[in-house]
Amino acid sequence: MAMLEVKDLHVFYGVIEAIKGISFSVEAGEVIALIGANGAGKTTTLHTITGLIQAKQGEILFEGQNLCKTPPHKIVSMGMAHVPEGRRIFAELSVFANLKLGAYTRHDKHEIDQTLEMVYDRFPRLKERRGQIAGTLSGGEQQMLAMGRALMSRPKIILMDEPSMGLSPLYVSQIFSIIEEIRRSGTTVLLVEQNAKKALEIADRAYVLETGNIALEGDAHMLMENDSVKRAYLGE
């Protein structure tokens, strides 16, 4: 059984159908990339999985449980973390407070401190700046904070929405190597990206989303060799 399985998902904004019946699955331990151009429906897909938007039709199964009617605040304690698009950090709170909020649904105080140390080890930059107001961090640091915050819930799967968006090349490589580390530590990753090249490099499998439909799917390295992918997403 797949860890996360999406079956025939349809999502509407009013009368506009943004997601037109997509299906995909994520196995435990995988990094799955969901790539596609701006407006393809990537964010909508993630928001539907995490309960921020209701699907009109279809099934979302997480470890066998249907998530369609689960409100967003319950999703986290089931073991799914979401790093929303656009570095949505808590701008007026400290780095430390942001990270603590990542563990909001946890009550094991002692182990939360251990997770915090683990996050600080992975992001030494956040440790240095733990007292700083998050809104004053640089873009790359804010993205790291958003990722660190998601890790604070000790998720089984982490959904990331365009973590490389708007970052300098140096930060982009750093973010992607952190994603690889997260996978090595045993957390499953569903990665939404416009940066198809980088995403395909680290993913096991990938789905290509085009205006609400899945146009292509398969092994990430095979997709990199695919002519239409090369033309449309890799700029070759």
């Binding site: 967003p72 701008a91 998601a150």
Partner: peptide, 19 residues
């Protein structure tokens, strides 16, 4: 902290499990 999180960003607040 949850109250201020809702103020700063309600989507992120929901994403960390705040109702």
């Amino acid at each position: 902290r949850a109250i201020m999180a809702v103020r700063d960003n309600s989507i992120a607040a929901a994403s960390v499990g705040i109702n």
